[in-house]
Design a protein around this nucleic acid. Structure first.
Lengths: 178, 178
DNA sequence: GCCGAATAATAAAACCTTTGATTAAATCTG
DNA sequence: CAGATTTAATCAAAGGTTTTATTATTCGGC
């Protein structure tokens, strides 16, 4: 049980440490390093996405998921919904729902695919193209501000470690979206 | 414009590289290292959270956000809604809505705070306590599988780099939830 | 060529999140 | 101490996600 009396009020910064030491007392068999890694990774990504979405995307009338779809269509060119889902890491149902909004806003257009009448071909409208380019420029400046707190070398090592973690996902047979 | 013809079908793994080289052609002034860092960070975290939620939390009747609230209450003890929001990194409105579900499911209870009649004190019910402990054990085993693809040293360095990135958020005046 | 199985997209229901009111209680200020 | 301001929580509207079920097509084996 090990109820820890907090000597000083816990804040967001110290909560990870607190949670880990509390867990050490309550569940001695827990893997604390793994716990710290996942907590920290989630916390950083969360803060980063919130900052980007609220300072870059929403002021321009886009959501973060909407930005991701435009981003994929910008780089991959016109593509089927299924492919956009794969490349963006969203489910097909999520893409379908999201494209309703993007189509209504005139940023993306739907068209029946030529070779398969079940499939839908998505493409950027001219307005969508302008939107993604303008938004990406602001997005990238913000990314630069975040990334700039690390040295070149640190950025490179961080990316390498993250890629290794991502490759490990296959080894542990992580569940992925259908 | 630099329309890149794809020599072979793009997949999720190669999309980051493709997006970066396409951006290099389309927007020469872009910071590609920052772009790669953010794309990779988001991609890994997304995959990790999806795997944890779909393999650990949903089968036990919890959502990922629900798990986070129980996790905070488990470690911090009974606390006001405002505090749970701060410690979990959610907005107060999100906590309020989420607790409706958790309360309905009998995992969390609401009570008016003693010192301030505006405030609500949240605490785990006995069922909530059982739920968080059982779920956390499975959650931690899954974390261990993911983290296990890195060496001890790599895990340590990854956490350090993530913490440095998180500290940088203050320097760049990142927006945070109210 | 035809019929059962697989596949693409969408719909439906349940949940969660965000921003911007609204309500009620506490606190500050003159 | 009264009035204005701030603060805690919740509500409301709009959007996004998930899983499961449906519909329309295409594919595969005989």
């Amino acid at each position: 049980m090990a109820a820890e009396p907090e000597p000083r009020p816990l804040d967001f910064l110290s909560f990870v440490d607190h949670a880990i030491s509390h867990t050490a007392g309550a569940l001695p068999q827990a893997d604390l390093d793994a716990m710290r890694l996942v907590l920290t990774l989630h916390r950083v990504t969360n803060a980063l996405v919130y900052d980007l979405e609220s300072s870059v995307h929403r002021p321009r009338g886009l959501s973060w998921p909407g930005f991701r779809v435009l981003f994929v269509l910008w780089h991959a060119g016109p593509a089927e919904a299924k492919r956009v889902a794969e490349l963006s890491g969203m489910s097909r149902a999520a893409v379908s729902a999201l494209v309703n909004t993007l189509e209504r806003d005139g940023l993306v257009s739907r068209r029946q695919a030529d070779h398969d009448r079940r499939a839908v071909r998505l493409s950027l409208t001219p307005a969508g193209n302008d939107a993604i380019i303008g938004t990406f420029e602001a997005h990238n400046r913000r990314e630069q501000a975040w990334a700039g707190t690390l040295t070149d070398d640190e950025r490179g090592r961080l990316v390498e470690l993250l890629e290794k973690l991502m490759e490990g996902a296959d080894l542990v047979a992580a569940k992925r979206r259908v």
